[in-house]
Design a protein around this nucleic acid. Structure first.
Lengths: 98, 98
DNA sequence: ATAGTGTTTGTCTAATTGGCCAAATTGACA
DNA sequence: TGTCAATTTGGCCAATTAGACAAACACTAT
C-alpha cells in the first residue's frame, strides 16, 4: 500500500465521506435556504435528535456547516455554498443514459 | 425515519460514497489524463490487484468510469470529467482557515 | 440554588466496508 | 482443446458507521 498516495487523497476523501449520507445531503440542502436548529431538522427527518446531532457534528467537524448557539438553541448554517454545485454534477452522473 | 427524504437523497449519496475513498479519488485523478489498466493502477498504489479491481468496479457501477477490454487487459476511462470540479470545491473546504 | 429545556455524548448492536488470499472466470492463441 | 495471462469473485476478518436509548452537560430563567 503506497502511503504517499493514500495520504494525498485521504483528506479529500474524508470531505466526500462527510457528505455521503442521505440525511447529511438533506441537511446541506436545507441550510442552503436558511438556518435551522437541531430539533427542527430531526422533526422533519423523523429521526432521533441524538442521531441528528451526530450528523450535524460530522458536517461541522469537516467545516461544511457551522453552529451558532442562540439561547438554548443551536442554529446551523452552510459554510460552503459551492458544495451545492457538486450536486449538479452528481445528478449528471445519476441521469446518464447507460 | 422519513423515508421520503431518505429516498430523495439516497441515489445522490451513493455517488458521493462511491468517490469517498482515497484510492478511488486517486483513480479518478489518474484517469483524467489517460486510460489505465488494472495492473498498472494496482502497481502504482501498491495494493492487491483484486482490491483494485473492486475499487474500479465501484466506480464503474456508479457510471463514473467505464471499462473497455482490449485483448487481455481492461482499460478504464473517466466518463464524467465534471467530477474533477468537485475537487476544487472540496479543497476550498479543506483549506478554509478555521 | 433549582428546575426546565435543548443539545451532546456514552454505550451497545447490526450492518457495511476494505483488505488479502485463493479460486473461478474470461479471452487469446498455440 | 489446452494453456497462459489478466481480471473478477468468494470467503474471511478487522475496522467503521448509523441508529436508538439513556445519561450527562449547558444555559436560561425562576
Amino acid at each position: 500500500m503506497n502511503q504517499e498516495i493514500i495520504k494525498t487523497y485521504q483528506l479529500e476523501a474524508s470531505v466526500f465521506k462527510a457528505m455521503a449520507h442521505p440525511i447529511r445531503l438533506f441537511i446541506i440542502h436545507q441550510l442552503q435556504k436558511q438556518k435551522h436548529g437541531v430539533q427542527e431538522l430531526s422533526n422533519i427527518v423523523e429521526i432521533d435528535i441524538s442521531t441528528m446531532s451526530r450528523h450535524l457534528d460530522v458536517l461541522k467537524r469537516h467545516k461544511i456547516i457551522d453552529g451558532e448557539k442562540i439561547n438554548n438553541n443551536v442554529f446551523y448554517t452552510l459554510k460552503i455554498p459551492c458544495v451545492l454545485e457538486f450536486m449538479v454534477c452528481t445528478n449528471k452522473v445519476i441521469n446518464q443514459a447507460k
